[in-house]
Design a protein around this nucleic acid. Structure first.
Lengths: 172, 172
DNA sequence: GTTGAAACTTATTAAAC
DNA sequence: GTTTAATAAGTTTCAAC
């Protein structure tokens, strides 16, 4: 659903205008999704009542899509993160389905991106060690007939740059 | 800090053993980071007291690294997400620093991965439209002397597969 | 938009089992 | 680990400004 703030959109179908308060609220909730209403209000410079109203509106309009705990993969013994590019032999619906079926249930995949370019898919995969990585690439990915070619990039350093809202707010 | 559950680690320096309750808690908190203690306890099949204790322990040991709101990039008018691979002319500390300085303040970058392979960095970038994408690639990335080559993959479909804990729990 | 108060829900702690 | 009870804290709604 498209967010729709009554009268706040300057152009029809244009980007929604979140004002400075909204942006501050989103930045604060990105940083701490469990901040209390009072603390949030103080942080953004509003009184609790309108602040709470804005949060509810942001939730209802889909700007805030939910809340989640950030879990350390290392806590599960998953110490290695890799990006695996996958090229399919052909892009027919059957081939795509075969590929997606094969990877769907794999818990080590945390992101599956369908992309344009020389490759078809880009997967983010967490594994415990090199043995687990080899097993995943050979026995899971490359054993799928539809998969023509894979290439694995080990992630040496990951900088997750906060969320969009945090960065937008920093710039504003 | 390494999580350390008293006596729960089967091997020294081995993967920490999170029991079924811990995994259920993590899965539930991934799905809804704002679930109440009572609801969480009911969901995982514990009474509130030990459930709350476990959550606190998971937080203190760094298994839970925090909580965050999920923000819709589209709410900011950012409709296009791309992965940009970057190859540097050389990997000298100066070149790396020059590159990182150039991209550090860019709010459209939400992820910066240092990777092994034919490329050096993989960036996840959100932009409003093709104009903004062209501007970013040409004026931000390719204007950095240290950048030798970039390649842009437009993300046609993004399946963010829950978090690790959710997927681990599904398998268990 | 602000404040303040009341009613309600939730969280936390302690004690006993 | 469980339950119960008490205290403390946070949330929501309302009225008035």
């Amino acid at each position: 659903m498209k967010p729709n703030f009554e009268g706040k959109s300057p152009t029809p179908d244009g980007p929604f205008v979140l004002d400075a308060f909204d942006r501050k609220i989103l930045a604060a909730l990105s940083e701490n999704g469990r901040i209390s209403t009072l603390e949030l209000a103080e942080k953004v410079g509003l009184s609790p009542t309108p602040c709470s109203r804005r949060v509810k509106r942001l939730e209802e309009t889909g700007v805030i899509q939910g809340y989640t705990a950030k879990i350390s993969p290392a806590a599960f013994g998953l110490n290695i993160c890799v990006m695996v590019s996958v090229r399919l032999a052909k892009q027919s619906p059957d081939a795509v389905r075969e590929f997606l079926d094969a990877i769907e249930a794999r818990p080590e995949i945390t992101e599956c991106l369908l992309v344009t370019g020389n490759i078809d898919y880009l997967l983010k995969v967490w594994v415990a060690d090199i043995d687990a990585l080899r097993h995943f690439i050979r026995d899971v990915l490359q054993s799928v007939p539809a998969v023509a070619e894979t290439s694995t990039m080990v992630i040496l350093n990951m900088t997750e740059a906060g969320s969009i809202s945090t960065r937008i707010e920093q710039r504003a």
